[in-house]
């Protein structure tokens, strides 16, 4: 029983990690309907800048996180301006290809010697990892921090999207750009803002990820990014609570299959379950089913 609870907590940590990335994914998707494949790589840049900030540049680590958020927010806005905005009224797939290109560019670019270099770097954690033992079940302070951050992000995003003016603008833009413009919404600015927020969230996710799994390298964003995106789809992409829910489910499914079924077949079973869920709920768990307009 203890080992089961321990596995639940392991799965929780993994799921929360996915949630950190999935939230940024789903926000961008919710606003402009684009799968931003470069999100995982912005996450990587965030991890690198944050880590270099507190280890090499001598910044205190909270400052390093803020610097990293600022850098990634700027990067997100630049990427949107250069690679996505010209394709905004093209077929969606064009922007997706552009996103894949940006993703490759960031990965191969940052593994060049004069950028970050290709090495796998061991990350020194800025604070000690403390393990509490509660009746045979161990919980670390890092897990608590991650959980707190995910909850804060979730509440912040819900507040931002549903209670603020810019959030209203984002929701308007997600319906119809032309109509939004007629209503006096600055579409370009709103989308830039969305990217800035999404990328800043990715930066925090990256730094936390590097603290939890203390290693960074230029290709670290691919898999977490892909899994987080999958989780966002599972939860119903575009739905902010859906991203968290989907991520938590992904985390549990992966952990439980590895723990109780077979670690060899983990990915196969996890994705088979994903496909099954999608067949039952074709728009994700919290996704609203699309009414066909005729």
């Amino acid at each position: 029983m203890e080992s089961f609870i321990q596995q639940v907590i392991n799965g929780l940590q993994l799921g929360l990690m996915y949630a950190l990335i999935a939230l940024g994914y789903t926000m961008v998707y919710g606003t402009i309907g684009l799968i931003n494949f470069a999100h995982g790589d912005v996450f990587m840049i965030g991890a690198f800048v944050g880590y270099l900030g507190y280890s090499s540049w001598g910044l205190p680590w909270p400052v390093a996180i803020i610097v990293s958020m600022a850098v990634c927010a700027a990067l997100g806005v630049i990427i949107e301006r250069i690679a996505y905005r010209p394709l905004r009224y093209a077929p969606k797939i064009a922007a997706l290809i552009s996103a894949i290109g940006v993703s490759f560019f960031l990965e191969y670019g940052s593994s060049l010697k004069f950028i970050f270099g290709p090495d796998y770097r061991v990350v020194q954690r800025p604070f000690r990892s403390i393990t509490w033992n509660l009746g045979g079940v161990s919980i670390t302070n890092i897990q608590v921090v991650i959980m707190a951050v995910v909850i804060i992000f979730l509440l912040f995003l819900l507040f931002l999207v549903f209670k603020t003016k810019i959030g209203a603008a984002m929701r308007t833009v997600s319906f119809d750009h032309d109509a939004a413009r007629l209503m006096g919404v600055d579409v370009d600015k709103t989308i830039s803002f969305t990217f800035a927020i999404g990328s800043a969230l990715a930066a925090v996710g990256g730094v936390l990820y590097a603290i939890a799994y203390p290693q960074i390298y230029p290709f670290m964003g691919i898999m977490p990014g892909l899994k987080a995106f999958t989780a966002a789809v599972l939860g119903g992409i575009g739905q902010i609570p859906g991203a968290v829910l989907g991520s938590l489910i992904m985390g549990q499914v992966e952990t439980m299959t590895a723990a109780y079924i077979s670690s060899q077949l983990r990915d196969a079973i996890a994705f088979a379950i994903l496909i099954l869920v999608l067949l039952i709920r074709p728009s994700g768990i919290l996704g609203r089913s699309q009414q066909e307009k005729i």
Binding site: Q6, Y213, M223, A258
Partner: peptide, 15 residues
């Protein structure tokens, strides 16, 4: 076993 992109091994290690 795990896959080469994994970073979280807690499930198999707890096992």
């Amino acid at each position: 076993s795990y896959t080469n992109q994994d970073t979280d091994f807690s499930a198999i290690l707890s096992k």
